[in-house]
């Protein structure tokens, strides 16, 4: 347990040491979301119709930004080798890295999400659900993105490869996340979509660490 906490603290420190990584992701998210009304025209009705979907697509892209480096630096400087030699094991290390990444980047992004939704013409009373769905989706983005980051280790232009691998797997998160917000704003029942979103994210949390561990070991050998 001491080992797990020590790694968690190190990952948080490294995430904030990477030249303000979390703030950068929030800036990117807000930037993409602001481009949308410019492209779509200022008609509030048209904008409100596409806003939830567009906001979630932007969230997926913003989460991807810092993910590509999740294992790369540890791989390059030999830390990944040494992480396999700790008693918690590599799968636990991968899970801790993703959780720390979620707290460092996913949580600030989720906090930005209500502001983005309002900027896109969403009603302010959607904000709690927007925050909750963004936070849950972020959990899934980070664990699934971690698989991509591990698979892309050692590849040239790994960042693009990560995007190509994981964006299809982000689909259910975007569909259910935007679906829940959309349902609430049109007065439908939003709970099923939220439940499916949570289920997908938690499944990813449970299974992805083993895939990440296997992919890292493959890159090491």
């Amino acid at each position: 347990m001491k080992a797990i906490l020590a790694l968690f603290r190190r990952e948080l420190a490294l995430a904030y040491g990477r030249g303000g990584g979390p703030l950068l992701a929030c800036g990117f998210y807000a930037g993409v979301a602001v481009l949308l009304p410019l492209a779509e025209g200022p008609d509030p009705k048209r904008l409100a119709a596409v806003a939830p979907g567009a906001a979630f697509a932007a969230l997926a892209l913003a989460s991807l930004l810092s993910l590509e480096r999740l294992f790369e630096r540890d791989f390059e400087d030999g830390a990944l080798d040494l992480l396999t030699l700790g008693s918690p094991g590599l799968a636990a290390a991968a899970a801790v890295k993703c959780l720390a990444q979620w707290l460092a980047t996913g949580a600030p992004l989720a906090a930005t999400a209500p502001a983005v939704a309002i900027a896109l013409g969403g009603a302010p009373d959607l904000s709690p659900l927007v925050f909750l769905t963004s936070l849950l989706a972020g959990l899934g983005f980070n664990f699934i993105g971690g698989i991509g980051a591990a698979l892309a280790l050692g590849a040239r232009r790994g960042g693009v490869l990560v995007a190509v691998i994981v964006l299809p797997l982000f689909t259910p998160l975007v569909v259910f996340g935007a679906g829940a917000v959309d349902a609430l704003s049109t007065g439908l029942d939003w709970k099923p979509a939220l439940a499916l979103l949570a289920a997908y994210s938690l499944c990813a949390t449970a299974l992805a660490p083993f895939a990440m561990s296997a992919a890292c070991r493959n890159a090491m050998s």
Binding site: D77, G78, L85, P88
Partner: peptide, 17 residues
């Protein structure tokens, strides 16, 4: 995972810490 140390050329130390 509990009984050995490896000291390699790449030392896994982060420059910024």
């Amino acid at each position: 995972s509990e009984g050995l140390h490896l000291l390699a050329h790449l030392d896994g130390l982060k420059p910024g810490r």
